[in-house]
């Protein structure tokens, strides 16, 4: 092919343009830290990265939900543990009653038992940091009234928080009440007829009236049943707490993996990019050098040198 003077110029211009485009791209990748910025930089990788980003955002949302669930399940378990101690204490008081105790001794126990009922009421009626009653179901009402009776306006609906895709964890428990209609919860169980508040209040009544027979008989049994009911909730709230904890650990691991995957997809591999930059620099310099040399070659130079000599 015939080569003309402008062939050299055009070649230098086109190769210089191409190399400068690559240099600009590489400079941008190194300075921003992103190999992909615009989706069109690599639509295939972008599509994958966008999905990864959405999954990561979802994991972050679940992690936040798990944090809320952790607080709620810990509150529930702490409350049930405290309640368990109160009912166990009540059982110990009743176990200490004998048939030859004096009425005064019985009344003293009745007073202590009454204090336990107050403590229990305080626990059952406690509110969360958001000011809502923790154990009134979804009705947001105190489970025990100021008169010391069950509040029948509460319900047994519990809430749960989804801490992983399709994995809800129960984050509230209901106190329940004897009704009517009866609502099952940690204070009342209709299947066994267990009534925690009722058992302790009856024991207070029997202790204050000096009815040792009732105390040692039906009251002890009722409190035992109450203890069993509360124990069940200690176990279930601990299990919920554990489930949230495990989910949190899994979410953290998944988030780390997902984040690394995303960063590997999107971010610039700096060592590789630096090497590539060096190669491009060399190529560009060589291209300019070759262009400069070739463009200077002309018969005009020889004519000039022959004329001057």
């Amino acid at each position: 092919m015939r080569v003309t003077s402008n062939s050299y110029t055009n070649l230098v211009l086109s190769s210089s343009q191409s190399e400068q485009q690559q240099l600009a791209l590489l400079q941008n990748q190194i300075s921003t830290g992103n190999a992909i910025q615009n989706p069109s930089d690599n639509p295939g990788i972008y599509g994958k990265a966008a999905q990864d980003q959405a999954v990561l955002a979802q994991l972050n949302n679940y992690t936040q939900a798990a944090t809320t669930a952790t607080t709620a399940t810990q509150q529930n378990n702490t409350a049930m543990t405290s309640l368990h101690q109160i009912v166990a204490q009540a059982g110990e008081y009743l176990a200490s009653v004998t048939s030859n105790m004096t009425p005064s001794q019985m009344q003293n126990l009745g007073t202590q038992m009454s204090d336990l009922v107050n403590e229990m009421t305080s626990i059952v009626n406690q509110k969360g940091s958001d000011g809502n009653y923790l154990f009134g179901g979804t009705a947001n009402q105190a489970p025990i009234t100021s008169a010391g009776n069950y509040n029948t306006n509460t319900n047994g609906t519990t809430s749960s928080i989804e801490v992983e895709q399709g994995t809800p964890v129960q984050t509230s428990i209901a106190a329940g009440h004897a009704g009517p209609p009866a609502v099952d919860g940690f204070m009342y169980d209709s299947a066994s007829g267990t009534d925690v508040l009722g058992a302790l209040k009856q024991a207070v009544t029997d202790l204050n009236s000096g009815n040792a027979t009732a105390v040692m008989g039906t009251d002890v049994t009722a409190v035992d049943n109450a203890l069993n009911l509360v124990s069940t909730y200690v176990g279930s709230t601990a299990a919920n707490m554990s489930a949230v904890s495990l989910a949190t650990t899994r979410l953290s691991a998944q988030s780390t993996t997902q984040s690394n995957t995303l960063n590997n997809l999107v971010q610039t591999n700096l060592p590789a990019a630096s090497v590539q930059l060096q190669q491009l620099e060399n190529q560009y310099q060589a291209s300019l050098e070759a262009g400069t040399r070739v463009m200077n070659l002309s018969i005009l130079n020889y004519i000039g040198s022959v004329t001057s000599s």
Partner: peptide, 21 residues
């Protein structure tokens, strides 16, 4: 837009955990 969508979904999830907030 994608970030705004994910944030909105997250806010709904937080509302599910604290519906009276």
């Amino acid at each position: 837009i994608q970030t705004a969508m994910s944030t909105f979904f997250g806010a709904l999830q937080s509302l599910a955990a604290s519906p009276s907030s």
